[in-house]
Every structure is written in structure tokens, then in C-alpha cells.
Nucleic acid binder design. Structure first.
Lengths: 251, 251
DNA sequence: ATTGTCTGTTCGCTATGCGCACATTTATTC
DNA sequence: GAATAAATGTGCGCATAGCGAACAGACAAT
């Protein structure tokens, strides 16, 4: 492949070999996880260690906080996370639930801001977390705003699978859901990503009216019925989106 | 240099060329910022674009949310940010000021969790933000906990410069400050990082008693006097640290 | 039209990064 | 403790991955 720097691609794969499930890896772990030879994996790990992105205790390699620098460039270049943050804090304090902002990236939503009040999911959510767009409230909001060709392309590409017994995974049913989102201006997703997880999202629009992100509140089925969620959360959520939009217009 | 993959180091430098000040760059901008030839810069940008970390509108290159994935591995592998997040939300709601958690990395503190109530600094703080340890409240807490040889090494290495007229930048004076921090168990930094910025930090310790992070609240000089800050913020901060520590013990 | 700047392309070249084989160290099993 | 297995470290010949240079084409400014 012309104009492709294989060593960079391989080195980045080494960074991605680390995860919540595997925070600390031996040289051989990394080689296995990436498919590289031990000698190559070692060279990449040593390079990353020299650069300060990885540390080594003599046996196990771990990432250092410096890798955040690679994502920080993205976060700091977006006004959205910074503008949204105080509004999310206010929203979370008001409704006593976790609140987040995400953008669409490929087939996923990516969290770019979050205030967490309590953990209600099996997995950790933090900045950078990705979930499939089709079965998340923020993803629904963002997909609903796509132009038809882009939505067609998404549906053609996306791996629509059921994650729970309630996941809407058939393209026709998903399109119907998105029609509803468009009509109402908000999305409620009930236990489609994970059993027990309920979330409600509304769009964040820029001055031209284009949906650029979504803001949501998530709760647990044991805490709130669907009508309660709508009644109690939707007005606050819409007000928060409006405030974020107003502030984005000034930045 | 043996065992050093130059292309990886160069490719990572290309990612770091993007910043809040330069969110979108042309090929020539990247080449200038990194010192690479245009041909090399182009190859790296095309590789990063193929991998999904960079996008291009025909002229300007920008980072995509996917670069967050490179730091997410670090964040998700640490229990601290996840454990701290709801406690920070509560603290921020209680004192109506921004609250953060940071760790020491080299000469800097790096923010790993944060709930922002309002912006009080000239620059954006988000996850991944780095500031010099010596003139920040969390940095002081973390430095105070270093064993003497490590503190000596820090002072030998660190570029101690005055950032404001109040910055304590002489090694002897800084040592005296750190003695105070040790004696009191908290650090107050008043307008040493930036005019107007006041912050108060306490340590977060693990079960062995080692300081592993710091938690702080930051305010503005126009909002709170020093005695008020101490009176109003310190008890909440210490309680928050205790709660975080208790939760860390269980994870 | 001319000039300057930027981006894309091609290509010969070489040095960068490769994998392999072996040595050494560490961990595991009996 | 001894033997074995697994993991890591090292050196090296080699070839190809990545290099920079030069040129062409596109675009912007005068």
C-alpha cells in the first residue's frame, strides 16, 4: 500500500492492545494481542517507553498518563466539551443522574463530556468511550439527523445485532424508531444496550440548525418508569441543550 | 538508536501537532510543526487518515474522535477516575466549584477526572490536561508525598519558572511549602499558576497509605478569600477524599 | 499572464526495521 | 534442588519500507 507507514500503524496497534481487561501486559502478551513478532513488539514497546507513553516494571508494560495527550489535542480543539461541561454538572445535580454528551464517529457514538453520579452499567463510561449508535439514545438522535444517503450508508455498514432481548436491530424497525425521534425531537432507549439501562437524549444543534452532538441522561429501570423518565428528565434535558447551544453560539 | 522505531515516534509527533491553537492543519503546517519533509508528513497523515484518527476535507486535516481511543485504554484501566467521578459530582454540587483529580507524571500533574462548574482559567482544562506540578495545589500534594530522593530528582529536573508574580519558584522556598503541606495534610495555591486562580487540594491514598493521586477544588480570587476557601472547602474536600479512598479499597 | 505557494506523484536509493537464531533469565513442574 | 518450559534480551544479515528530491499540476495573489 503506497503512502502507508506500516510502522506507525503497528505502533498504534500496540497502544490499543492495552485495555480495561488488560491494563498491564508482558512483551509476549503484546506480541500475541497484535500479531507481531516478539522482536517487533519489543521494539515498539521500547520506543513508546522512551517517548513516555508506556512504562515498564521489569516485566509488565503499562500505559502512562501521557497517552492522554494524544486525545487531549482532539478534546481541546473542540469547543463543545468545554462549553458543555458546566451545563452537564448542573443537569446532573438537578436530576441526580449521570449526564453525557457524545458525537457520532463512524458507526459509534463517542463520549466527549460526562458527569457521572453513580455507576449503572456493567462497563465503565468515560471520555473516549464508544458504543454502537443504533441502540443508544444519543446515537438515535444523531442518526435521525443524518441525510438519507448517509443513513442508508450507515445501515449498510453497521453490524446491527441484538445486545439484549429488547434491542431494535432490524433496519426497518430502526428506521421507524428514527422517524419517531425526528417527530418528537428526542430519543428514549429502554434496555437496548444493556438490561436495566434507560436513557433519554436530545440533539445539540449549531447555529445553522445542524445536529452536531447529543446530550443525554441515563438512569436505571429500577429507579424510574418510562413515563417518569420522560416527565422528569425531558424538560431539564431540553433546557440544558438550549443552554449549551446558546453558549456554543458565542464561542 | 537501537530498538527505536523512528517512524512511530514521527507519526506520534504528527498527532501532537494538532492543538487547541491549531485544530485544523494543512499538510505544510504539519510538516513545519514537526520538522518533517512534506512527503513524510503526507505519508503519516494519510496513514492516520486510513486508520481513522485523522480526517481531511480536501485541504485541512483534523483529528477525529477516534484518537480518544488511544487514551481511553489508560483511563479505563485505572479504577481511580471511575471511582472518583461520582464523588467529584457530589463535591462540585456541594461547593459550587469545579473539582478535579490528578496524578503525577514526570514533572506535571495530569487531570484524570473532573467536574467543571464554570470556567475560571484562560486555558481549557479537561481530562489529559497537564500543568507543572510545582505551582498547582494537586502537584504540591503529590510532590510532598515523594520520597526525598525522588523529590531531589524532581527539583533537579523541573523547569521552575514564575508564571505569575506570586509563583514560588525557588527550590528552597518550594521545599518549605512542601514541608507545610506535609504538616497540614493539604495544599493551598494562590494565584501561582494563573492570576486569580485559587485552589485547594488534598491527597488520595491507597490502602498502604501511599499517596496515589490528589483531589482539588478551584475557585477564583474574586469569589472567595483565602480564609473562606479554607473554611468552606477543606472539610468537603477531605470528606470527598475519604470517600474516594474507601471506594478504592473495594475495587 | 506571471509569480508564488501548496499538494500530489514518481522513483532511485539506503537506512530503517525486519525476523531469525541464539543466549540468558525467569517461571514452572516434579 | 534439578530439569524443563517459557519468556525476554541480543546481535546481525538482509531486504524492503520509508526516505527525500524533483517534477507536475493546481490554486491563489498580483
Amino acid at each position: 500500500m503506497a503512502d502507508h507507514v506500516q510502522s506507525l500503524a503497528r505502533g498504534l496497534a500496540v497502544i490499543r492492545a492495552f485495555s480495561a481487561a488488560s491494563p498491564a501486559l508482558t512483551l509476549s502478551d503484546v506480541a500475541r494481542a497484535t500479531g507481531l513478532t516478539r522482536a517487533a513488539a519489543r521494539r515498539f514497546l521500547l520506543t513508546l517507553t522512551d517517548l513516555g507513553y508506556v512504562r515498564n516494571d521489569g516485566r509488565l508494560f503499562t500505559l502512562t498518563p501521557r497517552v492522554l495527550e494524544l486525545g487531549y489535542a482532539y478534546l481541546s480543539s473542540l469547543s463543545l466539551p468545554e462549553v458543555a461541561a458546566p451545563h452537564l454538572e448542573r443537569l446532573a445535580a438537578e436530576v441526580h443522574e449521570s449526564a453525557s454528551v457524545a458525537v457520532l464517529d463512524g458507526e459509534d457514538v463517542v463520549y466527549v463530556a460526562r458527569v457521572a453520579t453513580a455507576r449503572i452499567m456493567r462497563v465503565t463510561i468515560s471520555i473516549g468511550t464508544r458504543f454502537p449508535a443504533y441502540c443508544t439514545s444519543m446515537g438515535r438522535v444523531l442518526l435521525a439527523a443524518l441525510p438519507p444517503p448517509a443513513l442508508d450508508a450507515y445501515l449498510a455498514r453497521a453490524d446491527l445485532r441484538r445486545l439484549t432481548s429488547r434491542t431494535v436491530a432490524r433496519p426497518a424497525a430502526l428506521r421507524a424508531e428514527l422517524d419517531l425521534v425526528r417527530a418528537r425531537g428526542w430519543a428514549m432507549v429502554d434496555q437496548e444496550l444493556e438490561d436495566g439501562l434507560r436513557s433519554l437524549a436530545v440533539p445539540i444543534r449549531d447555529r445553522s440548525g445542524a445536529t452536531v452532538a447529543a446530550v443525554n441522561v441515563s438512569t436505571h429501570a429500577s429507579r424510574m418508569t418510562l413515563p417518569q423518565a420522560r416527565r422528569d428528565l425531558l424538560p431539564c434535558l431540553q433546557a440544558t441543550a438550549a443552554r449549551i447551544e446558546a453558549d456554543l453560539t458565542h464561542s
